[in-house]
Nucleic acid binder design. Structure first.
Lengths: 247, 247
DNA sequence: GCAAAAGTGTTAACTGTACACCCATGA
DNA sequence: TCATGGGTGTACAGTTAACACTTTTGC
């Protein structure tokens, strides 16, 4: 793929912490090395790629996510830049870079993003930079290539504080969902129990959920009412909050 | 300065939003162009420079601040990365880049930091990248080179949300100060009036200020008691808050 | 004695949190 | 009829927000 390589800026990359939710646990999208010397233990990494010089940073991140998940219009927030000179110094990591990059020894600063996707809609396909991609529970991840574990932690922290102030969680859910599922999502992200009565009160005061006629079927308990997200109302709330911000 | 130039990575820069406080207004450090074609209006910019490949990002930012202000151990937080491909496309901006950079046409992604300094201690001296440096009231700034106005705004927003949760304001004040001055600082940053009784109560409950024996002199009103910041207590508070964060 | 900022308490509204029981369904 | 999760209200504690007068100093 020398042709592809030459379009890329060898000094700046994007890495993405892609969060998903299986209605129970918070998941993150990982890739396996696109190539690996025989016998070496495969090591997981976050999806990422060098940037293209004709796109801005956000568009580069969108491009990478589209390649990997088939999804566009994904919710994304920048986490920040990571650029320790020795972030790519582990032996196995260097071997991999030699394979996938034009200038494997160049110092690379990476811009990290986190994004929220509906796992059900995503259709993973390995891409130019990934041999295989898979969803793993965030809690099970103890090791990643380069400084990706640090980036994952930073993304998780930012998600925690973002979700406390903006109801962005719906990006992780299917179009129709139950309030209990939303509650579970908050518990998974904040990593603590949330009282369901208090949660319902809080959410319903925001007035951003629309009750559907439909109820759960084939469940061995009182079926829950499905709701969907009221995007217009949410956007109004957000812009009102921003206006208040400075005054 | 070709020698200096060659040590720098021409693709990645750091820009710094350096905040100060003159006990009344929030100020920001700006530089004038190091060179300017005759007759052209001078344009202000944020201090910044290309990175050196042997330093990590934080150390690069510290280096730039030390050169400019003579201060080390400055409080700093990363704002994020800014990298529109056309961020350096304004005509005057391009001329300037030709003068100060080795590869003026290269795409540069910049990592922005904000920092808080005690204006009284800082001793500005123009440096390799700045013809002159000066403090300006944040509110008076309506135009800056490149995308620096956007970066300033982002830095201000981050400062606003940081100071609401962490009492970092003391970095902007002299060693001894009055509670009214601290109140004024919060008003300047948050850009709104704060009730002094409520403010005093809140601050004193944190128990991070130590009352000094000394009082104001030569003021035509009841003299205020000076206080200083209790750093140990503050650090204890912070680490306790972080432990609570995930559980 | 007057102008100017320091310093000090109380009350009402709101927000967060803890807690337990009945309901609808499938098996 | 039992197991399972759905759905609901109340009371207390803590926090925020509004508000006015006396004190100390220089002039």
């Amino acid at each position: 793929m020398p042709n592809r390589k030459s379009l890329l800026n060898p000094h700046i990359s994007i890495d993405c912490v892609v969060f998903g939710f299986d209605l129970e646990k918070l998941m993150v999208l990982t890739i396996e090395r696109g190539a690996d010397a025989e016998g070496k233990k495969l090591r997981l990494a976050l999806p990422g790629d060098l940037i293209m010089d004709n796109q801005n940073l956000d568009d580069n991140a969108s491009r990478i996510l589209l390649e990997l998940t088939g999804l566009s219009n994904i919710f994304m927030e920048q986490i920040g830049a990571f650029g320790d000179p020795n972030r790519t110094e582990t032996e196995g990591d260097k071997d991999w870079l030699k394979y996938i990059r034009d200038k494997p020894a160049a110092r690379v600063v990476t811009i990290a993003y986190y994004s929220l996707v509906n796992m059900m809609n995503s259709n993973l396909h390995p891409s130019s930079f990934a041999k295989s991609a898979s969803w793993l529970p965030v809690k099970d991840i103890t090791e990643l290539a380069f400084d990706h574990l640090q980036i994952l932690q930073a993304g998780l922290n930012k998600l925690k504080s973002d979700i406390a102030t903006k109801p962005i969680g719906y990006h992780l859910l299917p179009e129709k969902f139950t309030i209990t599922q939303l509650n579970n999502l908050y518990e998974a992200i904040l990593d603590k129990k949330i009282d369901k009565r208090n949660f319902r009160r809080k959410i319903s005061k925001l007035d951003i959920l629309i009750e559907l006629k439909e109820k759960q079927k084939d469940v061995a308990h009182k079926p829950s009412t499905y709701v969907k997200f009221n995007e217009k109302r949410y956007k109004k709330l957000l812009s009102a909050a921003e206006e208040n911000f400075s005054f």
